[in-house]
Design a protein around this nucleic acid. Structure first.
Lengths: 324, 324
DNA sequence: GTGAAAGCGCTAACAC
DNA sequence: GTGTTAGCGCTTTCAC
């Protein structure tokens, strides 16, 4: 493996010159540049990123922590983040914590070891104390981790109102809301509050049921759907995440409940699964791509210490469908 | 940020001693070890991974290239790989190529720059020439990339026969197979061959339709499902990937076609979506977790130059369901 | 067992 | 402009 010294020798210039030519497009005379480039080609020289990292004290790598990637929302999120980071010149390190609770500690430690320039945290975290006093850049995605950690999220108050507006166009009397675990501190909780406010102002009854902690599989969701139909016989509207609501749709089909005639459904998230089921689900779409772009850009700003003016909150939209 | 020199000074020992104590559990007297450990704690010393990498010429990082992560199969695969690599002490770098064709070049270059110790390649690749003459460890996942690149995959011949056996228990006369693009060189193609052999031996008619190149969305799959029902009115069995077949199931429900009475369905992959739809899909399950473990272990063996005896091919199983 | 010192390969400041 | 050189922080050989 050729190193920079070999290139310098081959080109008949100094090491520093090679480095400058390679890293600064406006350095050196055309003649010198050509000599260096020829030498690089001849020796098939590829600079060592590790040495570069050590010298520059950065890795151009951002870590993403999510509970799982086998879930439509996180899958879209991770893909969008990876894409956004890539275009900003950053690589993506992935950590899925669902199967091992301690993994986030390890990942945070990796951040400290400077293996990564920053972390975008999209996983639930019960123990937020690890984040206290961390100097390195962290951005939370739709999670309250600690007062100092900035957080990117959709405008869930608007989201809740959009969902409410959808239901209000019809004549629902009893709406069941499916929520994530109460243990998780997330802004997403606000959409239920905003939704309830509107519904109660209109005298509509709402019940709320909770998914278990750290539940991202379909199994729990299917089970919960069945339970809802068993417990709330008179339910005529359901609001919940894509996965929850699509499970409800399927359960409804199995039970011969007609959607949207007897039951209205609104999914919160609007990932690809709302568009490709038995029918298109009416959904509040979280602007995942935009959120990912904001998170990525904010992260780069944080790393470079160059603040930007991007808003931390992005508005969701209503995706019309056939279920409400 | 404390460095190793500070720790050495604090502990009253030499730099080399600190390094040895930290990296070799059996080095040094208990007294010395304690002195070092105390100093580490006092200074909150965290070793720099970058410096370590440069010295050791390795990164303990493996890259994973997939077309997308917003697809059940790849989502499960990536998660399983990340998990397996984690337990082997490796970090996971993620690259999704669906949205940018050139990304795999960049990733391969990163491999050369020693940013990663190896790559597990799960993406399609039309231009396999980049892989020629690469010295660094690459493992292909269910893809033929180049003769020298080893490949981990399920036993698709067995998979095809399992699918055939499922259909043969019923009285199908006309089966449509949905296949990935013909442009992709993958062992997975073999399951169609094996399946056809058995079916034709039993005098059963089969047709095959192809998904477009690089198609991993549900949209294409839904469109194809509709097309199949339009074109092949007398179809009474469908075999294809999870996504394709679940799209067919939904299209069938919309058209009032009774499953399994009028139409038998077998999904090839057996990801979580086969278990949580309108009904459980009968499926040939690719052993994703095992495949990921094999790939991860093989990768580590390749990196360390310590060959193992694990088989490269893992048998699939039949997941009983309600659709065949 | 311990300390000094030579790398690992690159970057950038500093003289020429 | 160009060449020299001192780091970046750690690992590990090699004398003591």
């Amino acid at each position: 493996m050729a190193k920079i010294r070999d290139v310098a020798r081959e080109a008949g210039v100094a090491v520093g010159t090679v480095s400058m030519v390679l890293n600064h497009a406006d350095y050196g005379s055309p003649a010198i540049r050509k000599k260096v480039e020829d030498a690089v080609k001849k020796l098939q020289y590829v600079p060592s990123e590790m040495a570069r990292n050590l010298s520059l004290k950065r890795t151009m790598t951002v870590g993403i922590i999510v509970p799982t990637v086998a879930h439509p929302f996180f899958a879209e999120l991770v893909e969008a983040l990876e894409e956004a980071l890539y275009h900003l010149g950053y690589k993506t390190m992935l950590c899925c914590t669902r199967q091992r609770e301690n993994a986030e500690h390890v990942f945070i430690e990796m951040l400290q070891r400077q293996n990564m320039d920053g972390i975008i945290m999209g996983a639930h975290s019960l123990d937020t104390s690890i984040y206290q006093g961390l100097k390195q850049p962290i951005i939370a995605f739709d999670r309250y981790l600690s007062p100092e950690i900035p957080i990117v999220h959709a405008d869930h108050v608007l989201g809740g109102r959009l969902a409410a507006r959808a239901f209000l166009q019809h004549d629902c009397r009893h709406i069941v809301e499916i929520s994530g675990s109460q243990m998780v501190e997330t802004p997403a909780r606000e959409y239920h509050q905003a939704f309830n406010e509107v519904m109660h102002a209109h005298g509509i009854h709402t019940d709320i049921v909770f998914l278990p902690w750290n539940s991202f599989g379909f199994e729990e969701s299917v089970a919960l759907a069945e339970k809802i139909f068993d417990e709330f016989q008179e339910v005529d509207g359901i609001l919940g995440s894509d996965v929850s609501v699509s499970s409800c749709l399927q359960a409804a089909v199995r039970r011969g409940i007609k959607v949207p005639e007897q039951l209205k459904l609104v999914a919160y998230d609007g990932t690809y699964i709302t568009q490709n089921g038995i029918c298109k689900l009416t959904a509040v779409r979280q602007p995942i791509t935009e959120l990912a772009e904001v998170a990525a850009k904010k992260m780069v700003s944080l790393i470079n210490g160059t603040p930007d003016e991007l808003p931390w909150v992005v508005p969701p939209t209503l995706l019309p469908g056939e279920t409400c």
